[in-house]
Write a protein that binds this DNA or RNA. Structure first.
Lengths: 258, 258
DNA sequence: CGATGTCTTGACGCTTCTCAACGATCGTGG
DNA sequence: CCACGATCGTTGAGAAGCGTCAAGACATCG
């Protein structure tokens, strides 16, 4: 909440927006939007940078689809409340990624989006987005691709859950998160998890104790270094192997007695 | 393969198409398309009704995104080959549902689509679809919704897998499939599974023996009647309860000793 | 300094996986 | 027509991974 002092109904500073939008999934649409600056100003698109305190909700189940959001800083989790009280975590969204696509089909959000830490998101009104690409077939196709890709992440999630044991799931999770954090920057072995063990557990379909134990085991095996939510990848090769990387001959299962 | 004698490059019989397209997810786009009959004829859109023999592949991993498919008859499964040899089933697609949206993001298919029985699909060229909605904002928004919804199904899949035990997953699976078969028709207690126990298992993240045992248990409890792939729902209420329907007070767990 | 939330570690029981054998169904060929 | 193999489904026994319950360590904050 340092530089978000612009009034909510004042158009955004585009040069600032552009500078901080490099890893953004929707960047090309913003660039395109600048070409119609008048339209944008009139509709107030791209101006809404909402600061979210930790624990605040971006939307709730049942809310009408008003906008698609891009995470600018911080991290967001999407959670669905199941009938039996336990809610499961559908995804984590780091800077540059989309939130809110779950409402595309019905027009209403099925899940809720909660900030894992103080975060900033860029809300792009859905109506404006649909109109923006009208008359631009190439841009329209790109938008379909971006939306399809955003909704696609459920499939990689499924692959983490189906017939994989705890350590495999945890390894896949860490690699996936590391890769997504690196998308916009340089490669780093260090990850700082924005979510609790319980959130990880409900994302991976495990008990939180199992997640804790799994991380400890990977730590003892010198594959990663765990210090609370600070995690350093010490042996990327072995971590990838655990996550299911192809290694037909050298089939060396993890020593589980440790 | 009874009435598919139309040559592959001859435009489809629209009146026939319309009659059999009532449960179709993309129906409104077909109707819209009729308004531009010349365009459609010229491009050969909607004319490609490909008969698929059981076991035939609609597309393979790596194939370029050429078309989005709607299942007209039969059933299709989408499978992704994981690195470690085991492949997991991402979804089953029954008449009226979309196949092929996994390629929206990258432009290439990530998984393969295999016919579970002799099937017919309607292939709609992707390029034509994107152009079709150009200049029609409402239609464009609907297309985004349909695509988003199609890609959305991964999230309901995730909810079947996360922290649910075998019987719950099987109950959810049966109810979901029954509902989807009924989408275009009347309510029926009878389901004929188009897929093997192994396919169900790899969809639900279970061993095939566990699926078989689960079905047997539900059979013994008189909740369903199982005869091979013929399944009849005898007690929909209890089945829904098992699948996680809200029933706070009457919390009666399944007797597992039977 | 105590309270609270978060994470770790231990022990035990149970669901589920694995290995294995058997039965049913179907199509093929003699 | 029946034997035969192949595919598919069922059932059993044992082992193992994971969930549950429980206690304790650690950090943060009022």
């Amino acid at each position: 909440m340092t530089d978000s002092r612009s009034a909510p109904d004042v158009p955004a500073d585009f040069s600032l927006l552009r500078r901080s939008c490099e890893p953004c999934t929707l960047r090309e649409f913003c660039v395109q939007a600048e070409l119609r600056l008048d339209d944008v100003r009139r509709r107030g698109m791209f101006g809404r940078r909402e600061p979210l305190a930790r624990g605040a909700r971006l939307f709730r189940p049942g809310d009408a689809l008003a906008a698609v959001y891009v995470v600018r800083s911080g991290a967001i989790k999407t959670v669905v409340n199941t009938a039996d009280g336990e809610d499961c975590v559908l995804g984590f969204h780091v800077p540059g990624e989309l939130v809110g696509l779950d409402a595309l089909a019905s027009g209403r959000h099925e899940c809720e989006a909660i900030a894992l830490m103080d975060s900033q998101v860029c809300g792009i009104p859905y109506s404006g987005l649909a109109e923006l690409t009208t008359g631009a077939p190439g841009l329209n196709r790109r938008l379909l691709g971006v939306f399809g890709g955003g909704a696609q992440c459920g499939q990689s999630h499924v692959q983490m859950l189906v017939r994989r044991q705890a350590d495999e799931r945890i390894a896949m999770f860490l690699l996936d998160l590391q890769q997504r954090y690196q998308r916009g920057g340089e490669e780093r072995a260090q990850i700082v998890l924005p979510m609790s063990r319980e959130d990880v557990a409900r994302y991976l379909g495990l008990a939180l104790e199992t997640v804790s134990r799994g991380l400890s085991r990977l730590h003892d095996l010198r594959i990663i270094a765990v210090a609370g939510r600070q995690i350093e990848v010490l042996d990327p090769v072995q971590l990838a192997q655990l996550a299911g990387a192809p290694d037909p001959d050298h089939d060396q299962p993890l020593d589980r007695r440790a």
